[in-house]
Design a protein around this nucleic acid. Structure first.
Lengths: 85, 85
DNA sequence: AAGACCAATACCGTTTGGGTATGCCTGCGG
DNA sequence: CCGCAGGCATACCCAAACGGTATTGGTCTT
């Protein structure tokens, strides 16, 4: 699991679509699809329900979403922490 | 910043030596040296004081240590969170 | 003064990651 | 019923990142 995967996952979850998440992350669609699948494989969990209209979070995906946001928030706080405690 | 960098950093901080941290992380010494330096560069902070006896945390390094442990603990909890909330 | 220890650097091979092009499926409009 | 549009998945290629081996430089010890 990488921080990039978590960022991609949050973007897909929030936009409901790999395609929209791709432009938001400034990458193309295939890398996102791959990283999401890799994340699902590693966690042995299906995070999204694939429908013809996009991607919808599963229960497990919803749990990961709140957790991933916490992780990313902590990571983004790192520079401040290092500087000012 | 990557999770690997944080793991390497914690290992070096706890062992006080890149060489010992390397065997603990099951990698060789040069990759650790490089990742630690990359982390310092990215954070624009010196994390260790280099002495002939090894590496000692600076103030900023100590702040990063507690923070990095939090991040890694959160990440390691991910599989459980996904499964059981 | 020589050897030991440790971090830093050079160089190389492998792996990972992203990009382009394309295929497949589903839903919609004629 | 058929073609078209939208969206995810896959194939293939190239560049960047990562780790390993070998070596250097510097300091402490004897």
């Amino acid at each position: 699991m990488s921080l990039t995967q978590l960022e991609y996952f949050v973007a897909v979850a929030e936009s409901g679509s790999v395609t929209r998440a791709a432009s938001r992350c400034a990458v193309s669609q295939p890398p996102l699809t791959r990283q999401i699948r890799a994340l699902e494989d590693e966690l042995c969990a299906q995070l999204f329900e694939r429908g013809p209209r996009g991607m919808a979070l599963t229960r497990e995906g919803e749990r990961l979403l709140v957790h991933a946001r916490s992780v990313l928030a902590l990571v983004r706080a790192t520079p401040r922490v290092v500087r000012s405690g």
